[in-house]
């Protein structure tokens, strides 16, 4: 269900009170259906797991409960220290992805009447920043694996 205060806020910020209300109602309606489907999905998984519990045998032995590591008894701890070599990629990804998010609202208006050439120049500046960032990472050797 739409949250009444949120709808009120939406209505106030809308150009006209009633129009804003309608838009807000539609907006929340679509996401409430998404929420409903999520509930259906959770129910499906719960029923499947519950039914599975009734159907399957439960005969654990210590050997079964060992982790499988190619048939040899596991050595040391499962949560081993691993060298995460691509953590720099993670930084790159966060920076780039957050930047790219801004493309979407911009994409809907950039070719609207009255924008045109100016937004296109902006776009090239934006792409230039991304490309230079990528080039820098490449020069730094981040994108080659050792």
């Amino acid at each position: 269900m739409p949250d009444p205060t949120a709808v009120a806020v939406m209505a106030e910020t809308g150009s006209a009170g009633t129009a804003g209300n309608v838009i807000a109602a539609g907006y929340f309606h679509s996401y409430s259906v998404v929420g409903l489907l999520a509930a259906v999905g959770v129910l499906f998984v719960a029923v499947a797991f519950g039914a599975g519990r009734l159907l399957r045998p439960v005969v654990p032995t210590p050997e079964k409960l060992l982790t499988y590591e190619c048939g040899v008894d596991p050595v040391g701890e499962g949560w081993a220290h691993t060298q995460v070599r691509y953590y720099v990629y993670a930084f790159l990804y966060v920076i780039f992805a957050v930047d790219s998010i801004f493309l979407f609202p911009w994409a809907t208006v950039f070719a609207a009447p009255g924008y045109g050439a100016a937004t296109l120049v902006e776009m090239f500046i934006f792409l230039g920043f991304l490309a230079v960032g990528l080039l820098y990472a490449y020069k730094k050797g981040v994108l080659t694996w050792t």
Binding site: Y86, Y89, A90, L92, Y93, F96, A97, S100, I101, L103, F104, A107, T108, V109, F110, A111, A112
Partner: peptide
């Protein structure tokens, strides 16, 4: 991490085309 970005950018291109 590696593939979400090109996917996002390609989708953004279509969003630009369609407005």
């Amino acid at each position: 991490l590696a593939y979400e970005l090109p996917m996002l950018l390609a989708a953004a291109s279509v969003a630009m085309a369609a407005g």
